Amino acid sequence: MDMKLEVVVLPVADVDRAKAFYAEQLGFRLDADFTVDDSYRVIQVTPPGSACSLIFGTGVTAAAPGSLDGLHLIVTDIEKAAAELTERGVAVDGPFRDASGVFHHAGSTGRVAGVHPERRSYGSFAAFHDPDGNGWFLQEITQRAPGR
């Protein structure tokens, strides 16, 4: 049976600020904005080219705002993607690679400035946070590993 990740629920403190950040500043597609009452509002946005959406709002999660870390957006050109986000007013850390060459460590431990020296897929990253502190990574993938 196929299982596809369709939605990630994002904990935010200020729904309108999050909507402006994701839909306007980042340019994610605004799929829905439903207000049922003062205690329940659902907003759904989708990154360009993604099959997985984000949902945030009022009454959709008990998680603390800003508590998600390690969300990944896959790009084919890490330098171009980081520059585009910077142009949109987002503070971006990177590009960088991890000293281990495996993945990236939590926080900024093991970061080496610059892209992977061979531009190996899965080896270059950049990072940013939304206004609530939810942590995002850009990861450059130009050739998928077999079976993916």
Rank of each mutant, 00 (worst) to 15 (best):
T142Y: 08
F28P: 02
V9M: 10
D38P: 13
E6A: 10
A20M: 07
A127G: 07
H104C: 14
P47S: 06
E140S: 02
F56Y: 08
G133A: 03
S39A: 12
A99Q: 14
Y22M: 01
R97T: 13
L5Q: 05
P11V: 05
D69K: 05
D37Y: 00
E84V: 11
D130L: 10
L85Y: 09
L54Y: 08
E87P: 07
T35C: 13
A64N: 04
P131E: 06
V90Y: 06
A20E: 06
V92G: 03
G123N: 09
F137K: 10
A99Y: 09
V12C: 07
R97P: 09
D69S: 13
T46Y: 04
Q143K: 15
P95K: 03
T35I: 14
G110T: 08
P47D: 06
F103P: 06
H116Q: 07
F34Q: 11
G114M: 06
A126Y: 00
G101E: 10
A18R: 02
S67K: 08
R17G: 01
Y40F: 15
A113Q: 11
S100V: 11
L30A: 07
R97S: 09
V92E: 01
D77T: 03
V45A: 04
L26V: 00
L54C: 00
D98W: 13
A113K: 10
R148E: 14
G49R: 01
V45Y: 03
G57Q: 04
R111N: 09
R144Q: 14
W136A: 00
R97M: 11
G107V: 02
Q139L: 07
T109K: 15
D98A: 10
F125C: 05
G27E: 03
T86Y: 11
V12D: 01
F128E: 07
A83N: 12
Y40V: 06
S124K: 07
Y22E: 00
E79W: 13
H105M: 13
T46N: 02
D14T: 06
S100Q: 12
A64R: 08
T58W: 05
A82F: 08
V12Y: 05
V102R: 15
A18E: 04
K4I: 12
S108I: 09
P131I: 09
I141N: 01
V8D: 07
N134D: 10
H116V: 08
H129G: 09
L71V: 14
G89S: 07
D130Y: 13
L30D: 03
V92K: 02
G94E: 01
H72W: 15
A106Y: 12
G107S: 02
F21N: 00
G89L: 02
H105Y: 15
